[in-house]
């Protein structure tokens, strides 16, 4: 269980990015954090990842405080952030340094296969397309088998077709170990397709505006998704207008 208890974040310059975020995410749940820019989505994710520290409140994973990077928590950034001097396979295996070489190889090969990059294993990141790079980054996060996987708008720079393709890869990997996923997105449709629940945030300071259960079965059902998308879009629009 991933829990946020009254989490707030105020930056050194006085900007209040988050205030009073209280939220629980069940094991294996896919939760989408939706909201316009500047509503603290990325900040909340960075706090959970342990890259930044909260100004108030606490984040716990199964009772353990997340105030620094935790082995059970993985993060996929908005950009692929592959290390340019490592091959694709070496990048995917980056977090497996503690494991023996045979196990590392097997897990990397499996993950690469899962995201359709098996034949690119020995290429440099520069030789991959944007979508392929992001697939490698997702594989890198999954291969460490985290209990919680945080995704910070990982598909926002991709075209619609590639994005849909990556949704499939993400759900495929998720189905294997069923980690908790917290997905930050500004794309309401994406939240409807992928998530079990969507949390709509509102800005200045970032706080929870509404929480929606998304009852769409996966793999996706276009009509149910469309309904969920409409509902979310309305809520998002309302939260943005209230703050205008």
């Amino acid at each position: 269980m991933l829990t946020f208890r009254n989490v707030s974040k105020t930056y050194a310059d006085g900007t209040r990015a988050l205030a009073g975020i209280t939220l629980s995410v069940a094991p294996g749940e896919i939760l989408a954090l939706v909201g316009g820019s500047g509503c603290g989505k990325t900040t909340l994710l960075r706090l959970a990842a342990g890259l930044d520290t909260a100004s108030g409140g606490a984040i716990h994973l199964d009772g353990e405080a997340l105030d620094r990077p935790h082995p059970g928590v993985g993060l996929v950034f908005q950009e692929p952030r592959l290390l340019p001097w490592l091959t694709v396979a070496q990048n995917v295996g980056f977090g497996l340094a503690g494991h023996g070489a045979p196990e590392r190889r097997a897990r990397v090969a499996h993950a690469l296969d899962r995201v359709g990059l098996a034949e690119h294993a020995d290429r440099w990141p520069r030789d991959l397309s944007g979508g392929q790079q992001q697939r490698a980054a997702i594989a890198r996060a999954f291969v460490a088998q985290p209990k919680v996987l945080l995704l910070d708008e990982p598909f926002s720079a991709l075209d619609a077709v590639t994005r849909q393709d990556l949704h499939g890869h993400l759900l495929g990997l998720w189905a294997e170990t069923r980690p908790t996923i917290v997905l930050v997105t500004h794309d309401v449709g994406e939240a409807a397709v992928l998530a079990d629940r969507a949390v709509v945030l509102r800005p200045k300071p970032g706080r929870i505006h509404a929480i929606f259960d998304i009852a769409t079965p996966r793999p996706d059902d276009p009509e149910a998704n469309a309904a969920a998308t409409r509902q979310l879009r309305a809520a998002l629009g309302a939260s943005l207008r209230e703050n205008a």
């Binding site: 990842a49 890259l51 990077p69 935790h70 993060l75 950034f77 980056f94 340094a97």
Partner: peptide, 8 residues
């Protein structure tokens, strides 16, 4: 560097 931090 943050990638390194995430993988502790």
């Amino acid at each position: 560097v943050e990638v390194g931090r995430i993988f502790r």
